[in-house]
Design a protein around this nucleic acid. Structure first.
Length: 773
RNA sequence: GGGCUCAUAGUCCAGGUCGGUUAUGACGUCGCCCUUACACGGCGAAGAUCCGGGGUUCAAAUCCCCGUGGGCCCA
């Protein structure tokens, strides 16, 4: 009989037609029912090409979750969103148009950002679709849409009214040339020449002096403590003693801290507000009171005494002279110091306390811990990342940013008395360009207001994604059916941010957990094991890879290479060679397509054997799918299909299936079993490689989509367990092949080998397979 | 500096909870073979002191301790 499939290999071009069929058939459409399975899909950020291959692997696997759930009979809601708020697009836009954000009119700058996002987004959606992602693209959302930003602002206003938000000073990176705070991402480090001053400090009530080396002697007036390493025996006897700061004569305590390096300078370090980020951490950890020594104008403040009004660099030169005159200076050294400078202005940044808004989180930590316990983590070990983070939180969450492309903080201040006013929730507000919706100041009755110019930290937006997708505040009935959602899939590196902030915000707003399960994936590393990033230049663009090898190849690679939860390496050659397995599957199907599909048949020994092995395979796949660990089924299916089914079973029953020298009953048993096994493999593989399984399924078994089928849960109708024979069967076949080889016989030549007694039930199949005499 | 995590052939990976045959499979390499599903294939071969050191044990890739190295997150 002619095979129904004539082509000799899987052609990834077919994926395009299949995509079209899915789209036209709307086979993944969602209508809410009483019981739903909602995926809180991570909205990817379009931050410029290439979208990295690790992300493509990540989304492929999220789709496998959706497909697994669907085949398990769940009503799957799989929203698709695009995250568009934040710094990266601002930097991208500045670079693309060679402009500076703060020198461009705000509205104009926002438009340029939006255009850039639109282009990048279109490509990203194309990649997701081509990967076969079965999400709801028709209703995809954007985190910068009016609807989304309304939600961010409304939830903020709600928390503001509950007293969860406050203003406080905290140290910020400040670029006094541009007159603005800058994000950590905008800082670069340069080795700049500077003087390292060795300054003598007197220990109070002793004759001893400590010499401290510092690159920032002008900050002596802001010195709050001296630290030494706890292991440093030179200072053991002075711990807890007072030390007198030269010039200012302030008395500060000498204490221990592990961050002081014994081998640097004298081993003692002065801690000032703020010489560097380490000082910031120490002030926070040791709960020191800060002294503001440098003002927003970039000059020394009045606490610097006679140095007030000088720029830090001038003050440094002068204070070194004064230290020398007064005998406090041991020596100076010229060194190259790794200095944080503003990427834009190239001037050293200063760390200066500034007023920012904070969202209270410290009081919520216990609640979040309990909430975390209610959530199942896949894999369980990654729950620890959250728990460790909860242990180490020691400040509230700073939520305001001096940026443009983000959700505006909805506050207006009274011009007369500065009283802040928040508007009613339910609308999207832009205080930097809109009139205050409140007519009179609640405090002084004045009618003049000025709008807040700052935006929110982007996690303020991202952290309400479960509320947005479940239509919180927009559709109560829908919300009740969908929230709490079912699963949050996300990458490991943002457990402390996205996962944690979502728990925090959703708890604050709804009092409930946002999802029942969290699914945490590792990072995509390059061939050498380094994290891929655009700046390192080691990121692989997924688009050409997918175009060349096809989505299913890419997806199967992703499943078979990534053990869930662990980091994984990406290698293009490996991806390409994964295609071989799909070829194998294709050709097995091509062979089977020459036989009619038979609903039942009498089973013979070989049939019972392969069906027993199939039973094991089904069990193994279920184990993996239950955990959403696709590595397990991918490896098991490849192993079974290639090394047992194709290599041994098909060879053993080929003669029987053709019916040469076999009865009809014997022939039908083989044909039935062949189709039984292949159709089961296709279903087991459908969540991982949705295209090729769909194609083969439709050609061989049904007009209906395989993605509407229920997953095989067990294969127990064949009670006799024949898996005990597996080893002997494969060894016997191998022996015959070797025997023929050593006698330089062709495989079709006949040979005299006797079948072991144990395997006598299989002897007729063996005889036909090997042409045994 | 703190935390998490990993270490098995040229490369990737399984096994590790619960110690016990010859350490799994794939990619790559090499040799032979067009055998009517497949040369994007078949058969076969070579290739691993399971990171180092110590301990527990009749027995350790596996359990315990101490190192070393990589990765990521935080500071």
């Amino acid at each position: 009989m002619d095979p129904k499939i004539s082509e000799k290999a899987w052609n990834p071009e077919l994926e395009k037609d299949i995509l079209k069929q899915w789209e036209e058939g709307k086979i993944y459409e969602f209508t809410p029912q009483e019981d739903n399975y909602t995926i809180d899909t991570p909205p990817p950020y379009p931050s410029g090409r290439p979208w990295h291959i690790g992300a493509a692997a990540h989304y492929s696997q999220i789709d496998m979750i959706a497909r697994t759930a669907r085949m398990a009979g769940k009503n799957v809601y799989f929203p698709i969103g695009i995250d568009r708020n934040g710094l990266p697009v601002e930097l991208y836009t500045e670079k693309k148009h060679k402009i500076r954000m703060r020198e461009t009119e705000r509205g104009e700058f926002l438009n340029l950002c939006r255009e850039a996002l639109d282009d990048l987004e279109a490509e990203m959606i194309l990649i997701m679709k081509n990967l076969g992602i079965s999400g709801d693209f028709a209703n995809y959302y954007r985190t910068d849409s009016e609807e989304y930003r309304t939600l961010t602002q409304s939830t903020f206003i709600d928390l503001w009214k509950k007293g969860q938000v406050y203003l406080a000073n905290r140290p910020n990176n400040y670029d006094w040339v541009s007159g603005t705070t800058i994000a950590d991402a905008e800082i670069i480090y340069e080795d700049l020449p500077t003087k390292l001053a060795y300054i003598k400090f007197k220990i109070k009530d002793t004759d001893r002096e400590i010499v401290i080396a510092s690159t920032r002697p002008e900050l002596l007036c802001a010195c709050r403590t001296i630290i030494v390493n706890p292991e440093d025996e030179r200072y053991t006897q002075y711990i807890g003693k007072k030390v007198i700061v030269p010039i200012t004569n302030a008395e500060v305590e000498l204490r221990t801290h592990h961050s002081a390096k014994q081998e640097f300078g004298s081993g003692a370090v002065m801690v000032c507000s703020y010489g560097d980020q380490n000082d910031v951490a120490l002030f926070r950890e040791l709960e020191l009171e800060e002294i503001v020594a440098i003002g927003l104008d970039g000059r020394m403040t009045k606490v610097a005494g006679e140095y007030a009004g000088l720029k830090p660099k001038q003050a440094r030169t002068k204070i070194i002279e004064d230290l020398e005159t007064n005998g406090f200076l041991e020596k100076t050294e010229d060194i190259a110091h790794r200095t944080p400078v503003s990427e834009r202005s190239k001037t050293p940044i200063e760390i200066i306390p500034m007023e920012e808004y904070y969202l209270k989180q410290k009081e919520a930590i216990e609640k979040i811990k309990n909430l975390g316990q209610e959530i199942t983590f896949h894999p369980t070990m990654h729950k620890q990342i959250l728990m460790n983070w909860l242990e180490s939180i020691n400040i509230d969450w700073p939520i305001s940013r001096r940026r443009y492309y983000g959700t505006e903080i909805p506050i207006w201040y009274c011009k007369a008395c500065s009283e802040p006013h928040v508007p009613e929730p339910g609308k999207y507000y832009k205080p930097w360009m809109e009139k205050c919706p409140i007519s009179n100041c609640t405090k002084c009755d004045s009618t003049e207001f000025v709008g807040e110019e700052r935006t929110f930290d982007t996690w303020m937006d991202s952290s309400v994604s479960p509320l947005f997708i479940s239509k919180f505040n927009r559709d109560d009935e829908f919300f009740k059916k969908v929230y709490p959602t079912s699963i949050r899939p996300q990458a490991k590196d943002i457990v402390r941010t996205w996962l944690y902030y979502t728990l925090l915000r959703c708890e604050q707003i709804t009092g409930q957990k946002p999802w029942s399960e969290a699914w945490i994936m590792g990072y995509g590393l390059d061939e050498k094991g380094m994290k891929m990033s655009k700046s390192k230049g080691n990121a692989i663009d997924p688009l050409p890879v997918i175009e060349k090898s096809g989505a299913d190849t890419f997806r199967f690679w992703s499943a078979s290479e990534i053990n869930h939860g662990y980091d994984f390496r990406c290698n293009e050659q490996k991806i390409e060679s994964t295609k071989k397995f799909l070829s194998k599957l294709w050709n097995v199907s091509r062979f089977l397509s020459s036989f009619p599909v038979i609903k039942s048949g009498k089973l013979f020994a070989s049939d019972k054997w392969i069906l027993s092995e199939l039973g094991n395979l089904v069990k193994e796949c279920k184990r993996g799918y239950d955990e959403y660990n696709f590595f397990v089924p991918a490896i098991a299916i490849r192993e079974f299909t290639w090394n047992l089914f194709a290599a041994h079973y098909i060879e053993m029953v080929k003669g029987r299936a053709y019916g040469i020298n076999f009865s009809d009953e014997e022939r039908d048993g083989a044909i039935f079993t062949l189709h039984k096994v292949l159709s089961t493999i296709l279903k087991l593989l459908a969540p991982i490689t949705p295209f090729i399984t769909e194609h083969l399924w439709k050609v061989l078994y049904s007009e209906k989509s395989i993605h509407k089928e229920k997953q095989v849960e067990s294969e127990s109708s064949y009670l006799e367990d024949f898996t005990q024979f597996t080893k002997e069967i494969t060894e016997f076949n191998s022996n015959v092949w070797n025997e023929k080889k050593s006698k330089e016989l062709s495989l079709k030549d006949s040979i005299a080998v006797s079948v072991p007694e144990n395997l006598s039930a299989f002897s007729k199949d063996f005889a036909a397979m090997h042409n045994l005499e």
